[in-house]
């Protein structure tokens, strides 16, 4: 790689790729697991109108992680604690979109401020500090990987269990209530799963960039498909490609993985958006002929 002007070899560099890959194996496994689950939740984040709530929860999760760093306890546990408290508050108090948005607007700066305070008091490695906000450079140790895989497993299992009623409650709440579904309880359960996923995602790409995994993939998928199943499949594919690709591209560089993940994620969205615009222009609704079978 020839560097001219700015030293681009610091951004894209494939020297010693083999040995670096060994180092990044854990990050890749954990990252893909988180991306799979995030891609699964992303369509619900969109239909339930939660992108802003995701951002708010991630800032409180960051505060929890920073607090744990300061106290010298598990960052993952601190992050989960912050996430779950925020998710419960938003889920229980913010049932209507307007209440929820103002609640998140109130919680977010408070969480971020707490996090900044904890980090200012912390005297350890600086990389630990910024990693929480903007993502890790590399290296997820074995215990952390285990914790992340556990979280992802739990979230995926509960999602499989509640998938249909949650879909019903998300896209068609009036009829779901009439059919006896406990929409409010499902909403709280989903917020808790979202909190867990955010806590896991922060460990990889940082609190500020979580939306690239929880909002962008489904937003992109919805541009190109109208079928619930295809949107989910595309969303999971997009988030996994962004995360996996981002980690692989970031390996040889000195930059955290986040910009690679967010750029890939945004690129996918941009392409889908263009496809979506063309489809609308050609008449999205060009109705399929009456079914033959």
């Amino acid at each position: 790689m020839v560097a001219a002007g700015a030293d681009w070899s610091r951004v894209i560099n494939f020297d010693d790729y083999g040995s670096l890959f060994e180092l990044a194996r854990n990050s890749l496994i954990a990252g893909i697991a988180v991306a799979l689950v995030a891609g699964l939740l992303s369509p619900f984040v969109m239909t339930r109108d939660l992108p802003f709530a995701v951002h708010g929860i991630s800032e409180l999760s960051f505060a929890g992680a920073a607090g744990a760093l300061l106290l010298g306890t598990s960052v993952v546990l601190g992050s989960i604690a912050g996430s779950l408290i925020a998710a419960l508050l938003v889920g229980a108090l913010g049932t209507r979109a307007r209440d929820r948005n103002s609640l998140v607007g109130v919680l977010m700066p408070f969480g971020l401020g707490l996090g900044v305070l904890f980090l200012a008091l912390y005297e350890g490695r600086a990389a630990n500090k910024f990693g929480l906000l903007t993502g890790q450079i590399i290296a997820v140790e074995d215990t952390k990987m285990g914790a992340l895989l556990c979280i992802c497993g739990v979230v995926a299992a509960v999602m499989a269990l509640i998938w249909r009623p949650l879909t019903f409650a998300s896209v068609d709440p009036d009829v779901a209530v009439a059919r006896g579904i406990n929409v409010r309880a499902l909403s709280i359960v989903f917020m808790l799963l979202l909190g867990l996923t955010i806590a896991a995602a922060i460990q990889i790409i940082g609190a500020l960039l979580v939306l690239a995994l929880l909002c962008t993939p489904a937003a992109a998928a919805m541009q190109v498909s109208a079928s619930a199943r295809n949107i989910t499949l595309l969303s999971v594919t997009f988030s996994t490609v962004s995360m996996g690709g981002g980690i692989l591209l970031a390996l040889g560089s000195e930059v955290p993985i986040s910009p690679y993940v967010t750029t890939l994620s945004f690129g996918i969205y941009a392409v889908c958006r263009v496809i979506g615009i063309q489809r609308t222009r050609q008449g999205w609704a060009a109705r399929p002929q009456p079914a033959t079978s």
Binding site: T47, R164, P165, V171, A176
Partner: peptide, 27 residues
Amino acid sequence: HHALSSASGLRPRDLVRLGVDGHRWGP
């Protein structure tokens, strides 16, 4: 009647399907 957004990720088939088994738990 609420205007359903075109971005809701739903087809008529999906909405009717919810009426058939949308209340059922498990995969």
